[in-house]
Amino acid sequence: MSTEVQAEAGEHAAPAPRRHRTSRRTREALVGYLFLVPSLVIFGAFFFYPFGRLIWLGLHQQNRTGTATRWVGIEQYGEVLGGEEFSQGLWHSVQYLIYTVPLGLVLGLLLAVAAHRRLKGIKIFQTIFASTVASSVAVASVIFFVLINPQVGKFGRVSWLDLENPDSALFAVSLSSVWQNLGLTFIIVLAGLQAIPDEIIEASILDGFGPVRRFFRVTVPLIAPTLLFLVVVLSIFALQAFAQIDILTQGGPAGSTETLVFKIFNLQQPAKQPIGSILAVGLFGVTMIVSLGQFMILERRVHYGN
């Protein structure tokens, strides 16, 4: 309180002349941009410039050493985005999303609901459930290598986890992502559950809601924004999956685990860069559509409370 009074008094005591104030404003703008420059330089050099360059590369062809480029025009986009390489990669990425997001969300929700109660020692269980957050994609891949590698894995010969069968390989790989993301999903859902005011739960009990009805009619709608956030995050993770495939299958068998990012990664030789660039622009578009679409579809059904 006293500082406020002092501040006011200070302003009254020394009314700044107009010229001085404008120069102060200019100075403030200068400082503002000075502070923004470090971030803007990085964003310009490693986010916007390369994106522009991808689009430019997609309009050209390159020789094998990358020393000569030739304009081929926008038709190349049509050819590549309509071609098999893109549709196959996209299909694998979408499959990966379908395998990982619903399963991961349901399991994370199960863990969070189970651990959201007042019990002695619940913190131990919460720490265990959160623990997979410590594993990177690469660590999770090695851990699943132990379980499902065809030669040395404990479950390497289980038919629906067979990494050597094109029909099951992508699903088997996806389980490593489901497991790895459990910790993050658990932490975020639990935080959502803990943010629900107790009065609402109490009121629903007074209204005669049983545990199951209460879960679907009260709890889930209340944590819907959290779940929506997770659906978006997990979908983006799925569309960016690379390390799992690089470590567990290297794209095989018969290209059945070549996701969009895996293909982009392997189209880096100068002659193939234009194709890779168009796939990357396609990935950008798909990521946008998926996250915007999820927002628009789910937003209407989400209750933000307040």
């Binding site: 503002g32 991808l54 880096q268 950008f284």
Partner: peptide
């Protein structure tokens, strides 16, 4: 701080979220 084009600069920062390293990798 107040400075010209502050909102635009903020949009620029938000836009980087849509350009993950997987997209811009090749370039």
């Amino acid at each position: 701080l107040e400075f010209p084009l502050k909102r635009l600069m903020f949009v620029v920062v938000i836009a980087t979220l849509m350009l993950p390293i997987e997209v811009t990798l090749i370039a």
